[in-house]
């Protein structure tokens, strides 16, 4: 009985959750310039505009890709030593570092965005795309920090002792035991940053200083002029990317464990 109600509730939640997404997807098919649902004069022309013809969108898509991949790589590279330090020493310093590293993600992004706007203004990075990459890497570093820490904690400490009794120095143990066992967690962290960077726009708004735009930023900027169906195509693209990425994480990583599920029950 209870179980049945649970399933019905889950289904209802899923419908509400999907509702605006479905509407946006439908709106992408509009023939005219206005967003209506259900779409009028359905056409696929908007997809061509977004991916091929309109340079505003193709440039924005390029910038989004550069920022997302750059930020994901940088965030993982920054998070690894902190997570490793936290795991291997557990020192006070490493705890403080992990806490500070997660700070930008924890506070409202508009505050960090304003701060980074000032910061790049003084250091000369304002409006540079590399500054955007660094900004997103810092903002989202908390995610690989968490996934890598989960991965490290999953390693049996006896494995390290075993390696040592077989002649492995700490460096060799790191390369042959720690690193291979944490690869799935590192990749998950990378993907989390990738997807969230793709979708972030407030921080990007403050650090880009209107000299370049990512896709979400482009949409944000044209907010006051109203939505166009081409933007809906962007939305579809992003949803598809998210679903693909998280499916990959679920397929090759342990998604329930990453989300903190109890390990003793399967």
């Amino acid at each position: 009985m209870m179980r049945g109600i649970g399933h019905i509730y889950m289904a209802l939640s899923a419908i509400v959750l999907a509702l605006p997404i479905v509407v946006v997807c439908g709106a992408a098919l509009n023939g005219g310039r206005t967003m209506t649902f259900p779409p009028r004069e359905p056409t696929l022309a908007r997809f061509g505009e977004f991916f091929i013809y309109e340079t505003v969108w193709t440039n924005a898509l390029g910038n989004s890709l550069i920022v997302a991949f750059g930020a994901a790589t940088l965030a993982v590279l920054l998070a690894w030593p902190i997570a490793y330090l936290l795991w291997s020493t557990g020192s006070r310093l490493s705890q403080v570092l992990a806490g500070l590293g997660s700070l930008p993600f924890a506070v409202p992004p508009i505050v960090f965005g304003v701060g980074l706007g000032f910061f790049w203004g003084f250091t000369g990075g304002l409006g540079e795309i590399w500054a955007g990459v660094v900004s997103h890497a810092i903002l989202l570093m908390a995610l690989p920090l968490v996934t890598i820490s989960i991965g490290l904690r999953a390693i049996d400490r006896a494995h390290l002792d075993a390696a040592a009794t077989m002649g492995a120095t700490e460096a060799v143990t790191f390369r042959t035991v720690v690193l291979p066992q944490t690869v799935p967690y590192t990749i998950s962290g990378f993907f989390f940053v990738l997807v969230l960077s793709f979708n972030e726009f407030i921080v990007m708004f403050f650090v880009s200083a209107s000299s370049y735009a990512t896709v979400t930023l482009q949409i944000f900027n044209s907010l006051r002029n109203g939505y166009t169906p081409t933007m809906a195509v962007a939305a579809i693209t992003f949803i598809v990317v998210s679903v693909l990425v998280f499916s990959a994480v679920a397929r090759w990583g342990d998604l329930p464990r990453l989300m903190g599920a109890d390990q003793s029950r399967n």
């Binding site: 049996d156 002792d161 390696a163 009794t165 002649g167 066992q181």
Partner: peptide
């Protein structure tokens, strides 16, 4: 240090590398 002694050791959990 352990890695220079190289005494072979069998652990309680066996500690076999899963990868």
């Amino acid at each position: 240090p352990a890695h220079k002694r190289k005494f072979g050791m069998v652990f309680q959990s066996f500690a076999l590398f899963p990868h």
